[in-house]
Nucleic acid binder design. Structure first.
Length: 278
DNA sequence: GTCCCGAGTG
DNA sequence: CACTCGGGAC
């Protein structure tokens, strides 16, 4: 359960922010070790802002969705330049950071600063639609109903409980056995079709990973991370039997995202040529 | 093979 | 609105 995890009740807002960004698209079990390593290496926003992006990408190993690392690196720079090195506490300021959307801003406001803010991610969206409303909710409705349900309860434990129920029981395929809300769940009491899939923020099925460009991107970044700058010929050899067209496609995509740099035939992690000046 | 997931961009 | 983005659990 999430309440056993090391970032729960952590006193440092920076540690909370890092955990929430890592948790955006990644299961908690896969976040624990990288989160520890990342914070050892970048204990403060200043430490990350002062480091080259390539160091941040290296520390992101195993997490995927590397644009999150790029955005967190940029966010650290803004935290230093605009917020005196302290993670801001208001929703508006949090939301102004790259890679911080509605979910992450509310999660940091609640878990790091105990602001009376209800967190709605897609798990919580399902809990609200099923157990609380038994009907599909739009985005604004979900936010309003969540605030209404929370009432004057302390936001952090309330949000943690909602996230736990959503992740543990109220999954896409509901696991009602043992669910703490089973006795009060309107969907179970009243029946009807599952209101969650048409509710706000419910994620769509995604294309298969196997054979995808994302898979090639991941392999390419791993090469650059673990073996340093690589020539195109080395990449072609090491990623065989990948076709040259698919390698070029992934490389172009990573370059557009600012995650790798090309210097002639040499490919390296973005920012590894940085002079260190800020 | 199937499932899972938040932010940014167009 | 539709689309992209990793990779492990099962």
């Amino acid at each position: 359960m999430r309440r056993d995890l090391p970032w729960i009740n952590h006193p440092d807002p920076w540690a909370i922010l890092v955990s929430e960004v890592m948790l955006q698209q990644t299961a908690t079990s896969r976040v624990v070790d990288p989160w520890r390593r990342f914070l050892e290496r970048f204990a403060t926003p200043v430490a990350l802002a002062d480091a080259p992006l390539s160091d941040a990408l290296a520390a992101w190993a195993g997490l995927g969705y590397h644009r999150r690392a790029r955005d967190l690196h940029a966010a650290a720079g803004l935290i230093v330049s605009r917020f005196a090195g302290e993670v801001p506490s208001s929703l508006e300021d949090l939301r102004s950071l790259p890679g911080v959307g509605a979910y992450t801003a509310s999660a940091v406001a609640s878990f790091a600063f105990h602001a009376p803010v209800a967190v709605v991610d897609t798990n919580v969206g399902r809990v609200l639609a099923r157990a609380w409303a038994n009907r599909a909710l739009g985005r604004a409705e979900a936010a309003r109903e969540s605030a209404r349900l929370m009432g004057r309860a302390a936001s952090a434990p309330f949000n943690q409980a909602m996230l736990d129920v959503g992740a543990g029981h109220c999954r896409s395929r509901a696991l009602c056995e043992g669910c703490p809300l089973a006795r009060v769940c309107r969907w179970r009491r009243e029946g009807g079709g599952d209101p969650a899939p048409t509710s706000a923020g419910v994620s769509r099925r995604q294309a298969p990973f196997e054979g995808s460009r994302r898979q090639v991107r991941g392999a390419l970044l791993r090469e650059a991370r673990e073996r340093g700058p690589r020539t195109l010929a080395e990449l072609r050899r090491d990623l065989a039997p990948l076709t040259a067209a698919r390698l070029d496609d992934a490389l172009a995509s990573l370059t557009r995202d600012g995650l790798v740099e090309r210097d002639g035939n040499v490919v390296r992690l973005a920012g590894s040529m940085a002079t260190g000046a800020r």
